[in-house]
Computed example of a mutant assay.
Amino acid sequence: MVEITDEDFETLVTAELDALPDNMVEGLDNIIFVIEDLPEDGSTDLLGLYDGLALTERGDYGYGEIPDRITLFKHNLQAHCDDLEHLRDEVRITLVHEIAHHFGIDDERLHELGWA
């Protein structure tokens, strides 16, 4: 397990998000990124979660829409990794995985693409 401070983890997540290709992050309107220690149910195997309605299942956002949410679970990501580089890789993979859900890509297709 690798452990870093909350501030360093937030910096790492921001850096990995900023490093993603433009074509991957374009269209991420009305979406927030959140860091929590653990999922509400306390599960230790969930690294991230997309909470929202995929773009393929909705029309345009309207005024006052609640933003979609991508949550990264710091404790689970740290517990899954042996060193800082591994943590960086898992954060990037988790971000891509959850962003893909926002765009309507399911787990089966993510497995085919090597992102799950």
Rank of each mutant, 00 (worst) to 15 (best):
M1V: 14
E3H: 14
E3R: 15
E3F: 06
I4F: 02
T5G: 14
D6T: 15
E7P: 02
D8T: 09
F9D: 13
T11Y: 07
V13L: 10
A15C: 02
L17I: 07
D18G: 05
D18C: 02
A19P: 03
A19F: 01
L20W: 05
P21N: 06
P21R: 05
N23C: 03
V25E: 08
E26A: 12
E26H: 11
E26T: 15
L28W: 04
L28R: 04
N30R: 06
I31T: 00
I32L: 00
F33T: 00
V34L: 07
V34H: 05
V34W: 01
E36L: 09
E36T: 08
D37Y: 04
E40V: 07
E40G: 04
E40Y: 02
G42M: 05
G42E: 06
S43V: 10
S43C: 06
T44M: 06
L47W: 04
L47S: 11
L49M: 08
G52K: 12
G52D: 08
L53D: 12
L53P: 01
L53Q: 14
A54P: 15
T56I: 14
E57I: 01
G59M: 04
G59P: 01
Y61Q: 05
Y61P: 02
G62F: 06
G62L: 10
Y63F: 13
G64F: 07
P67W: 05
D68W: 03
D68K: 04
R69Q: 12
R69C: 11
K74H: 06
A79W: 06
H80D: 15
D82Q: 11
D83I: 01
E85R: 06
H86N: 04
L87M: 03
L87W: 02
R88C: 02
R88D: 07
R88P: 01
I93F: 14
L95Q: 05
L95M: 08
H97K: 09
H97R: 09
H97L: 05
E98P: 10
E98S: 08
E98R: 09
A100G: 15
H102P: 01
H102M: 01
F103M: 00
F103T: 00
G104T: 00
D106N: 15
E108V: 09
E108D: 13
L110C: 13
L110P: 10
L113E: 13
G114M: 10
W115S: 06
